[in-house]
Write a protein that binds this DNA or RNA. Structure first.
Lengths: 153, 153
DNA sequence: ATAAGTGCAAACCGTTTGCAGCAGT
DNA sequence: ACTGCTGCAAACGGTTTGCACTTAT
């Protein structure tokens, strides 16, 4: 399990290098650290949160660079943008099909997988719409932590 | 079919009135027109789009009022806010469980229903997360109209 | 050496807010 | 008449952009 993660983490870094080379983009300290931070963040950080975390390692980094790098990564399909109902933009590293659980109280996002859904046939009527590429579930409710807080009051 | 729509349209207006009364809110010309526009709009309009449409009937209406009224309707559960990946906020009148098809090219949103999914049991692991209240699918791809345009070029 | 990337500050744009006059109850 | 709603204009906050300097190739 851990080995697999290490493996894929490493391959993701080389993918990033390859991508940059191919596009003639420079491999900078800032880009690498932003990408690293995104890969190792399991919560779905906002731009601000990523900025603050990366700044611990590169104190002179600017918020602008984080924005620009995220745009780059998004374009390359290496990160996904998630728009929460609050209008906050969050990011996650792209690691295959998964779905989201969002707590309406504390706004945290958790991932879950559901293989049988991913391979399930969509209603046939949808074929007329066009070419569907992705399907994601967004499930909303109240997480256990928030449920407990509610009971206490 | 039409009768049913008319019926529900009417009941939705009375619901709106009831809600306002209960909350001690005033039933104004502006609110009624914004609500009507939202109910009859089948595309998922942005605030701007709603504003422009309502302005045809109430030329002096301000964008602010549209924002305030939408917040009100949202609070009452009479409309849903949809955050697109472009960061645009769109609205739809709340009319029961449905899902979204989003075209990555033209950004239009279409609804679809999938009853068997709605009643399907979620993976049992999710129960530990908390109390799930809603589940929505967002399917993305390219709509037929955009596919045709691509072929032409 | 060269072209791209960075940090800074200013611009931008959708959204929210304070206020004085207006309208529904 | 009273209270809340509206329109205006100004403020706000997240994001983008222009520019001169710095850095990877």
């Amino acid at each position: 399990m851990l080995d697999q993660d290490e493996q894929s983490l490493h391959s993701r870094f080389t993918d990033f290098e390859k991508f940059c080379r191919k596009k003639g983009l420079k491999m900078t300290h800032q880009r690498l650290e932003i990408y690293r931070e995104l890969l190792t963040s399991k919560d779905h950080p906002t731009v601000e949160a990523l900025f603050l975390r990366v700044r611990k390692r590169i104190p002179t980094i600017s918020l602008d660079t984080v924005y620009r790098t995220l745009a780059l990564l998004e374009e390359a399909g290496m990160t996904n943008r998630i728009q929460t109902s609050e209008g906050l933009t969050r990011f996650e590293s792209d690691y295959g099909a998964h779905h989201h659980l969002i707590c309406k109280k504390c706004q945290t996002i958790e991932d879950f997988t559901w293989k049988s859904f991913d391979t399930m046939l969509l209603p046939p009527e949808l074929e007329a719409w066009g070419a569907i590429q992705t399907r994601n579930i967004v499930a909303e409710g109240i997480c256990t932590a928030c449920l407990k807080k509610e009971k206490k009051h």
